[in-house]
Structure formats: C-alpha cells, structure tokens
C-alpha cells in the first residue's frame, strides 16, 4: 500500500465526527478515575434490537458507551438517543460506525430543545454496526480534562419506511 492510501485509511478510522467540532481524544487515567474514550469506549455488551429502548446512565469516567446492532433485514433505521432536555452536561451524541465498510461513520448531535439525537442510516442485513453513545461535551474535552457527564439516557434503533428514488447509486 502506498503512503497516501495508508494515511487515508488512518484518517478515516480516526475521523472525529463531532459534527460541531472536535479535539483529540482523552484516554489517560486521571487520578483514580477511570476514563474511557472514543477509541476505548465501555462496551455494554448489549445488542440493540429494532424498536426496543434501552435505558442507561453516563457517569464520569464512563462517558462513552458502546452498543452493537446487527439487522436481520436491510433498510432504513433511525438510531435514536434521548436524554433529559436541558440537562447541564448531557447533550445527546450518537456515532454509528460500520467497521466492515471501511469504518464509514455517521454521527449526530442532538436537538438542544429536546435533547433527542437521531441518526438515520440505510443498514445492510448481517452487518454489525457499532453504536456509540456519549455527550457532545466529551468529544470536546481538552487533553487532561475529565469527563463530567452524569445523567440518564435511552437509546434505540427504530425501523423506518423510506422510499427514496434512485440518487447517486
């Protein structure tokens, strides 16, 4: 592989799609507090299923939760994350990664009025997608800063019926 292709692959996998703006990840241990990160999220071990809502809580040090979704059928789905509107340090943020497709990524930052974040993806049956849940603040942490996200959220993957005509396909 030539250097440029390698660079491009690295760039693709490291892209920080904060959708607002992003800084470097923060992975180091700070004091006694465990710090997960975009590249080292806490794997919940949970496989999301269409239409079923999973409740969880982001806590300091564990601000990046990883879920998995393997659709049985191809088609449009809405990945959704809802956090309490107006929460002081939890602004819903979703990042969907298709590792089998050259780490294609879709990311979204939630509506500040509702704190609902929705990322709509046309998924392929049998592919496993990583679903990363965090707060927008965590994607903006400066090096050395600690996660402060502390709040509940709920996440789901809901099937959608969308009938777009052929576009750039």
């Amino acid at each position: 592989m030539n250097r440029r292709r390698i660079m491009q692959g690295v760039a693709a996998s490291l892209l920080l799609l904060s959708a607002g703006c992003a800084d470097d990840d923060f992975e180091s241990q700070v004091g006694e507090l465990r710090q997960d990160s975009l590249n080292n999220p806490t794997d919940t071990g949970i496989d999301l299923e269409p239409g079923l809502w999973h409740d969880n809580v982001l806590v300091p040090g564990e601000g990046w939760h990883l879920y998995h979704f393997t659709p049985e059928q191809s088609g449009w789905v809405a990945f959704q994350m809802q956090a309490p509107p107006g929460h002081e340090n939890l602004w819903s943020y979703l990042r969907i990664v298709d590792p089998e497709h050259n780490n294609e990524v879709w990311a979204g930052v939630g509506n500040k009025r509702t704190n609902l974040c929705e990322v709509i993806v046309n998924v392929d049956a049998g592919h496993t997608y990583d679903v990363i849940v965090t707060s927008q603040e965590n994607s903006l942490l400066a090096a050395g800063a600690t996660q402060e996200t502390d709040g509940p959220y709920t996440v789901a993957v809901s099937p959608l019926t969308l009938d777009f005509e052929a576009g750039t396909e």
């Binding site: 299923e49 269409p50 239409g51 079923l52 809502w53 789901a156 809901s158 099937p159 959608l160």
Partner: peptide, 21 residues
Amino acid sequence: EVASFFVGFQGDFGGEPPFSP
C-alpha cells in the same frame, strides 16, 4: 422475545413505530 409499545417522548402517541415488532 420482547414486544414493545412506544408512545413517543412527548407522550403524544408519536412513537415511530408504536409497536415493535
């Protein structure tokens, strides 16, 4: 294994979809 009814976050029968599966 699990069947669900979702009413939407505004509680206004806006779940999309309301029933899963």
